[in-house]
């Protein structure tokens, strides 16, 4: 026998630290569940009440025009889908370039300047403006003069998107490491060249995410559209002419109506809007990741 061999005990000790660790893990798990439950509930409610309406005699709901008499049962939401696409695309075309350029100014050119501070502050204030106020603003400066059109809605949504795009893009530019900029300058690149070929591409995944988020949120906004887009029930593919409609406005209108048929259409429209946003975001992401890896 070899006598004194002290056992090397490598098992974890029962310490307070370990107890704390398990408590925290449980709390985080609980938080996750607390987040997932409402999300799942919303999706379940949408499919439960909306799928029957939206997919009965497919694809009528997605193509037919909206019944003029809202008491009458039946499809569809076609004009509202086109309207949403039109209004949101218009808003994105206005807000995304402007917002990215604004963020580039704030972070790359105006850093530390008083004017940049003022612009940043104003963008922050703009984030806090209620969307219905934006709608009234556009109503006064645009709709009263030129009448209802999809573009009025685009203006309203663009006002809401702009501060989000500026904020998220500036955040992403901040994450681009300075040594990358220095490497570019050290090769004799000008500032504009450095921003266009090094900084923006390096920040692009984050910028795209921020813009997609802004677009997805804008697509579901109702208040700015109420006074600006009007309420058409027929297809209107024109951005600048005549009253149009959008899914969110249709949800609002139909859900507040007192007829079951209208309320059913509201559920269908809600499901359609969620699916549309999901598909559009997914497509944009796929498109962009393919572009970058190529």
């Amino acid at each position: 026998m070899i006598g004194t061999v002290t056992a090397t005990d490598l098992r974890p000790r029962r310490s307070w630290r370990r107890v704390k660790s398990s408590i925290m893990t449980c709390l985080m798990g609980a938080a996750l569940v607390a987040i997932v439950i409402p999300l799942a509930a919303v999706l379940w409610a949408l499919f439960d009440k909306g799928a029957g309406v939206a997919f009965r005699s497919f694809p009528d709901f997605f193509t037919a025009e909206i019944p003029v008499v809202s008491r009458r049962a039946g499809p569809g939401m076609g004009p509202a889908i086109v309207g949403t696409l039109l209004v949101t695309t218009g808003a994105a075309l206005l807000a995304v370039p402007l917002g990215i350029l604004g963020a580039v100014y704030l972070h790359e050119y105006g850093r530390g300047s008083r004017f940049a501070g003022l612009v940043r502050f104003m963008a922050m204030v703009m984030t806090g403006v209620p969307s219905i106020v934006m709608g009234l603003f556009v109503y006064v400066i645009w709709t009263m003069r030129f009448g209802y059109s999809a573009f009025g809605g685009s203006l309203g949504l663009a006002c809401l998107m702009l501060p989000i795009v500026i904020g998220s893009t500036e955040q992403m530019l901040r994450l681009v490491p300075n040594p990358l900029r220095e490497a570019s300058y050290a090769l004799g690149a000008s500032k504009a060249r450095t921003i266009l070929t090094i900084v923006l591409p390096a920040a692009s995944p984050g910028i795209v995410s921020g813009c997609l988020l802004a677009i997805a949120r804008a697509a579901g906004e109702t208040a700015p559209l109420l006074f600006t887009v009007g309420a058409a029930s027929a297809y209107n593919p024109h951005l600048f002419e005549e009253a149009n409609t959008a899914l969110s406005a249709q949800i609002f209108g139909n859900a507040t109506a007192s007829f079951v048929a209208a309320q059913d259409r509201a559920w269908g429209a809600a499901l359609t809007l969620v699916m549309l946003t999901f598909v559009a975001t997914l497509a944009a992401r796929l498109l962009f990741s393919r572009k970058r890896s190529a």
Binding site: P179, E182, L187, G188
Partner: peptide, 28 residues
């Protein structure tokens, strides 16, 4: 920029661009 084109610099930490090897060299 003209000065830096003639007087190159290598930094303390390697700072390649997040691009391909080829594009890193071809940038300048």
């Amino acid at each position: 920029p003209e000065v830096r084109r003639r007087i190159g610099m290598v930094f303390q930490k390697p700072n390649p661009f997040p691009k391909s090897i080829y594009d890193n060299i071809a940038f300048g």
